[in-house]
Design a protein around this nucleic acid. Structure first.
Lengths: 205, 205
DNA sequence: TTCTGTGAACCGCTTCACAGCG
DNA sequence: CGCTGTGAAGCGGTTCACAGAA
């Protein structure tokens, strides 16, 4: 039951199940089966059952899974049963789009600060946020207790920004720059790679 | 050597190698090894050699891989040895950010059209593009021969937009909406899922 | 009967280890 | 000697198939 024993690939499917369950909830469904949940998540029914069984017995034989209950269990496993404050570094076009997009807050990621190093941007508004300087970024983040960040800075700045974030105690970084980033073992980085995804698809054209 | 015989997971690593090789080229390197290429790509050396051997013998025993040659070979395998015209559907904040970001064109994906359904947006400029109506989208795309698209429309609109794209002959779709999309077998969809990536990381916090 | 949870079988990817070539 | 290409071994994830509970 400890983190170490659960395959990362299983963990990576939990958010998919959660997304599908929340869709079911919107549709007013209350019960589902491994069959149905799997179909809508593009995952086999056996896989769904096996994955969920790593964490407990969430289903009822003969009837299936209670959507509200399963959903709250997965949210708790993923630590999504709370709101995470997030620092956004980079107030360019993409940073703007992210800061103004309501989807992150709806799923529990609330953007608390928007940082930029460009003096001409500091003080500007993006949505309900005001861009602040990266000068005291590490201090501000440390004091606020934030451990989740997203970076939308140019590739050449990414590693140095990440170094500052690590120094400030950040443990999870979503990286929108098309570069691989070095971090200590206790920090996680996920990179958003639309270009690599496109290149993957062109192979099959 | 046909597409069917090469594991998809191998194909998905080629863009990573290509990215690293292009980084090496920028640094002025001309030769590399499976060891070095793997380290910078976070992939084992044995994996690198095995992957590349699916497509041919690109290396020289004793010395390693010529970066220019290997890079051009992978580009050819991925069909990245040409420029792909792309249709972008959705002229909101994210669409703007993508349309104005030079990274796609630098990697061979040239945005040819930006579509939006909002009448008040049509005719507006985004970067060097002018937003056009989705009304004749299928026709325009069909006539231009475009088979690659990106969609940054709201989730509720995603499936119907994709249906139109499929009808217009599009074969590869990069989806920025947080929903799973149904398409025929001969069409590929990759979804950009920053929220799922964040949720994956929070598990380990 | 239906549908879960799960051991066992299966399959495929990764790693190993070394022959072979420069 | 250095490093690739590759069969073989190893490992881990997926699927199967069924016992068992509702």
């Amino acid at each position: 039951m400890t983190e170490k024993t659960i395959p990362d690939i299983v963990v990576s499917r939990l958010p998919v199940y959660l997304q599908t369950l929340q869709l079911f909830q919107k549709e007013g469904k209350t019960i589902t089966s491994s069959q149905e949940l799997g179909e809508k998540s593009c995952i086999s029914a056996a896989q769904v059952r096996k994955d969920l069984s790593f964490f407990g017995e969430f289903g009822k034989q003969g009837s299936g899974y209670d959507i509200g209950y399963l959903s709250s269990q997965i949210r708790s496993i993923l630590k999504m049963d709370r709101v995470w404050d997030v620092a956004l570094i980079g107030g360019g076009d993409l940073g703007h789009a992210i800061a103004r997009y309501p989807g992150f807050a709806e799923r529990g990621f609330r953007i608390k600060y928007v940082f930029d190093s460009d003096p001409s941007k500091i003080g500007q508004k993006v949505g309900s946020h005001t861009i602040v300087s990266t000068e005291n970024m590490a201090d501000t983040i440390k004091k606020s207790g934030i451990i989740v960040a997203m970076i939308t800075v140019p590739s050449r700045a990414a590693q140095s920004v990440v170094d500052q974030l690590v120094q400030a105690g950040v443990k999870a970084i979503l990286n929108y720059a098309p570069v691989l980033i070095d971090v200590p073992d206790d920090v996680r980085v996920e990179t958003v790679s639309p270009i690599l995804q496109l290149e993957h698809m062109t192979y099959y054209l």
